[in-house]
Design a protein around this nucleic acid. Sequence first.
RNA 1: GGUGCGGUAGCCAAGUGGUUAGGCAACGGUUUGCAAAACCGUCAUACACGGGUUCGAAUCCCGUCCGCACCUCCA
Length: 510
Amino acid sequence: MPVRLYNTLTQKIEDFVPATPGKVKLYVCGITTYDLAHAGHGRTYTTFDVLVRFLRARGYTVEHCQNVTDVDDKIVKRAKERGEHPLELSRRMDELAREHLRAIGCLEPTVMPRVSTTIDGIIEFTQALIEKGHAYVAETPLGKDVYYSVRSFPGYGKLSRRNLDELRAGASERLAEGATDVKKDPLDFALWKAVGPDAFGFDSPWGKGRPGWHIECSAMAFKELGEQIDIHGGGMDLVFPHHENEIAQSEARTGKPFARYWMHGGFLEIDSEKMAKSLGNFVTIKDVLEKNDPEAYRYFILGTHYRGPLSFDVTKHPDGRVTFPGLDEAERRMDYLYATRDALVALAGDIEPGMPNILQGQAKIVAEAKEKVLEALDRDLNTPVALSVLAELGKAANEIVSQAAKMKKDPAKYEAVRKLAASAVRALADACAPLGLMQASSEDYWARTKERRLRLRGLDAATIDAKVAERSEARKAKDFSRADAIRKELTDLGVEIFDAGETSTWKIGI
RNA sequence: GGUGCGGUAGCCAAGUGGUUAGGCAACGGUUUGCAAAACCGUCAUACACGGGUUCGAAUCCCGUCCGCACCUCCA
């Protein structure tokens, strides 16, 4: 079955066929770097990260271009407030965003162009549009602006299904509020805006100014990927006007279809409202990472189809603690997956994987897991179904481990079940790979979660170790009431105890 | 008003004409000194509402209701 993706342009799920067989050119609109990246950004970039990992797992070579908007009015404004150079503020925020996205498992895009280093391309693109009659220069008190003439492009509105007359009604009202009317049509949008001689800007044939928001993406995609790309992605809020304008610019210049497929991710919501910087209801990725494991966040995101809304719940406890219940639940699932893998590895040791004729129900699940995950992703990135495959595999794996304990007396059987366990380890890795899950070593995963959970609960490991040791002594002496009392005490602190024979281990609950 | 995205069992969430999605919670069982974890079972003939098409509809058609977003900067 081919890869199928929903295309906003046609409103249909279509077979994915890139322009060049085996090669995918992907452009994803990046972040405007004036503040920390929030959990909604994280959702979008995680979605496209899974798309990239998945397409690669399906054998495609993916060129993933994600821009950095480092020249923008918001950046200039924020920088001014802080007495910082705009590009310096942007560089700092970009570094943090990269760090946070890397932490949640997003692979570095192949290319990351910046506005500030693409000014030549933007100017060239703007000039081309002027020459072709799609853009015009307008005089303003600050100098010369360049606007795109929306009426010059017949296909305007085809992505967002809007027609110019309906749009004009809204735009005229806004203009009435005292804006200077230098545009020929209220819907025309800026390609280049003049700034005063003292403001942050770049020299151009039209004087000092800054590029408009939409032209930069057209120019960067053109420069890095060429005239036509396979997939263009971003959040749903970019459909209009940003992506509509990109189409108008790029197709007016080249005369060719810009992107074959347009993909848009749904919103992350808090209290049923879109999480947004402008609404002030956002939780940053940094906030998330302080409370939960990065893979728990990814698991949480993948639990809902990328086009639907995803509710990010925040619970404020009576004691003042703030938690994210959805992420907590996801983190328990990650604990489960890592614990499952640990048990498999402990059983398999370094035996070679194989598919012996044993535990056939489980063996079938192990054999099919990888392909089932890929098949789920074939269907417009159905990550919830992919996670259900992981759940099925986890169950089978744990069953293999518990059945193995009963086979120890029969060396031939035991070796066979160990081979199956080794296959399950491989299957788990293969099934997780396109999702970007279970990327840590067990050692790292348990260490980082332990450290974080101890910190959140204000506990320290040495105290717990001492209590657990004391309890072990009590158990050895068959003083079970003493042992149970200590366990109760620890449980109340959020510490879970696991007895295995005479020894006990512990972990902090989520 | 226009354009989209949603409304599925206690909760989260797949499915888009007939065949067990999955997870969480709860309860019962196997296991355990007792637990926990793990596994098995139950909850589950649920699909916003009203009509219609069909042998058969959560799924298609018509009409409503509700939530959210975009139409100005937004992933």
